[in-house]
C-alpha cells in the first residue's frame, strides 16, 4: 500500500503543485521586483514582454525548427533588447513624472503588446510542442515544465544576487518558460508588493504562499476560488502588516 495514502493524496498533490506554481510565480516576480527595486517604476506590461519571449520560442523552435538552445538564447536577447527599448522610449521620459503616469504608460504598452500579439499571432493558443513528461511520484502527478520553472527560479535567485545591477537579466531569464494559458500579470505585482518591493527573498516567500493558497483553495473549491482567496489574502496582509510596506515608502 502506498505509504503516502495516510495523507490526503489530493491535498499533497495540490500542495506540491502549489510549490511548483510558486516557482513560476517567483520567477515572474523576480524580474519585476528588479525593475521596481532598481528604478522604482511599476511595469504593468511586464508579463507581456515574457509572452513575446514565449511567442519567439514558439516560432523559432516549432515553426522554424531552430535548435532549442539557439531559440532560447535568441529570445532572451531580443526580449532584453525590447526591454531596453521600452525603457528608453517610454520609461525614461517619464522618470520624473507622477508615478501614476508611469503606471499608465506601461499600461499602454501592455495594451499595445497584447494586441500586437493578437494581430501577429492570432488568438488561439500556440503549443510549443515541447512535450515534457509528467512525472509520477508516489501516485501524484507533477508537471515537468513547472518543475523546470521551479529550478529556473532557484537558479534565477542566485543569478540575481550575482548580477544585481543587470536589470534585464532577470527579465530575460523568465523568457524561457513556455507557460501559456493564465495571465500572471497582476498576481506578479501583488507578490512583489507582498514580499516588500525590492526584497528578493520576501518576493520569493510571497510567491510560494500565494501559490499554495491558489493551489489548495483550488483543490477544495474551484480554481477561481483559489484566486479569490489569494487576492483577499493580499488585501488583508496589506492591512495587518503595513509596516513592512511602509519601510519602502518615501
Amino acid at each position: 500500500m502506498n505509504p503516502l495514502a495516510v495523507f490526503d493524496i489530493f491535498l499533497l498533490e495540490a500542495l506540491l503543485s502549489g510549490v511548483l506554481l510558486g516557482g513560476v510565480l517567483a520567477l515572474l516576480s523576480l524580474g519585476l521586483n528588479l525593475v521596481f527595486g532598481v528604478i522604482d517604476v511599476v511595469w504593468i506590461c511586464y508579463a507581456e514582454l515574457i509572452m513575446l519571449g514565449m511567442y519567439g520560442m514558439y516560432y523559432l523552435y516549432t515553426v522554424y525548427h531552430a535548435p532549442i538552445w539557439v531559440a532560447a538564447v535568441a529570445c532572451i536577447v531580443s526580449v532584453g533588447i525590447l526591454g531596453v527599448l521600452l525603457h528608453v522610449l517610454v520609461i525614461a521620459p517619464l522618470l520624473g513624472a507622477a508615478p501614476i503616469n508611469q503606471l499608465l504608460a506601461t499600461g499602454g504598452v501592455l495594451f499595445f503588446l497584447q494586441s500586437a500579439a493578437t494581430v501577429l499571432f492570432g488568438i488561439e493558443f500556440k503549443n510549443l510542442g515541447l512535450r515534457l513528461p509528467v512525472l509520477k511520484v508516489g501516485g501524484m502527478f507533477v508537471s515537468y515544465s513547472r518543475l523546470l520553472a521551479f529550478a529556473a527560479a532557484l537558479i534565477g535567485m542566485v543569478l540575481v544576487y550575482l548580477w544585481l545591477t543587470r536589470t534585464y537579466t532577470g527579465t530575460a531569464i523568465r523568457a524561457i518558460h513556455p507557460f501559456v494559458g493564465l495571465s500572471f500579470g497582476p498576481i506578479t505585482f501583488l507578490i512583489c508588493v507582498l514580499g516588500s518591493l525590492g526584497n528578493f527573498v520576501g518576493g520569493f516567500v510571497a510567491a510560494f504562499v500565494f501559490a499554495e493558497i491558489i493551489s489548495v483553495g483550488g483543490l477544495y473549491l474551484d480554481l477561481e476560488w483559489g484566486y479569490v482567496f489569494a487576492f483577499a489574502f493580499f488585501i488583508v496582509m496589506m492591512f495587518i502588516r503595513p509596516q513592512g510596506l511602509m519601510a519602502r515608502r518615501s
Binding site: 517610454v90 499608465l104 504608460a105 499600461g107 499602454g108 504598452v109 501592455l110 495594451f111 499595445f112 503588446l113 497584447q114 494586441s115 500586437a116 493578437t118 494581430v119
Partner: peptide, 9 residues
C-alpha cells in the same frame, strides 16, 4: 487595442 495602446503611451 494596438492603436489604442500606442495613443495612450
Amino acid at each position: 487595442n494596438l492603436v489604442y495602446g500606442v495613443l495612450l503611451v
